[in-house]
Design a protein around this nucleic acid. Structure first.
Lengths: 153, 153
DNA sequence: CGCACTCCTGACCAAGAAGGTCAGGAAAGT
DNA sequence: ACTTTCCTGACCTTCTTGGTCAGGAGTGCG
């Protein structure tokens, strides 16, 4: 139920790429690392994973670097998280719809399904374009405006 | 972004305790383990954690066993998950409200806050009583009735 | 009292993930 | 050719996950 450093880094780097999409030139890994304060070599591994998932493209050499494979408003945060962390809200490493619960826990399956659906409702709605513009989808506004959304429990 | 075996086991065992709350006698660990098919010794460690968090009580000896410290409709799934997994939706092991994002990732904080809020909206609404009766809160019904809530991505 | 029963506790363990670092190779540009 | 930058795999340390094992300590009963 936590967000890994890798996922956080991946989204941040992707946000930088989204912002740079206007310029017609690739962005170097080093610049991404500096902009978001991420260890360079670790970041390059992450970018490679994003590339393998078709989210990012890259070119090597002098004028090389990374860029988004698609327009920023077509890439969701959910995609990026899945690329580096794997499936969202799996239970014991298996998808909730495949689990059979017995006895008094029978309805737990529906709860885990609801958990996954609520995560998707946020992560699949927010695109990289939303993220850099700051114009987040309504659902984020609703969720973050509840007074106790910003306090720990 | 996944649910550990421990959290799953904990909720299932707690559901059994909730169902047994009518009988005025404690439930043995062995019975819980069998009912939910959980390795006994691992389960006892989990129950101990729940006890330390004031969710469960226990007595040793011949007529000993475990029981819920409070009525089943006052114990939420969120409490149980926190007891065994720690805080929900932390990023890089720190709460999202404490993170400062720079540059184009500035609004990522709001997204993680929304993620946490949406998890809470489910986990803090569902009580153990809901779970054993099968009468889950409206929000769960809404989330699970979307057609693609039950399919993988 | 003694004994069985059950929880309680800490030590241990193997495998994997998290969060990196290091060294070298392979394309691209000049 | 040479530099630049990505690409790749190996390696590393620490922590977490998902357990098992051995023994201690409280409780109830005959």
């Amino acid at each position: 139920m936590r967000v890994s450093a890798k996922a956080d880094y991946a989204v941040r780097a992707a946000a930088e790429l989204a912002a740079a999409q206007a310029e017609e030139a690739p962005v170097k890994g080093e610049r991404l690392a500096e902009a978001q304060d991420i260890p360079l070599q670790f970041l390059e591994h992450i970018l490679l994973e994003l590339k393998h998932h078709g989210i990012v493209r890259a070119r090597r050499g002098a004028k090389g670097g990374y860029w988004l494979a698609r327009p920023a408003d077509e890439v969701t945060v959910a995609e990026i998280v899945r690329a580096v962390e794997g499936p969202i809200a799996h239970v014991q490493s298996t998808p909730p719809e495949d689990i059979e619960y017995r006895g008094n826990a029978e309805h737990l399956q529906a709860v885990w399904i609801a958990v996954r659906a609520s995560l998707r409702n946020v992560l699949e709605e927010v695109t990289l374009a939303d993220l850099v513009s700051g114009e987040l989808p309504d659902i984020v506004g609703e969720l973050t405006s509840a007074k106790d959304a910003w306090v720990a429990r």
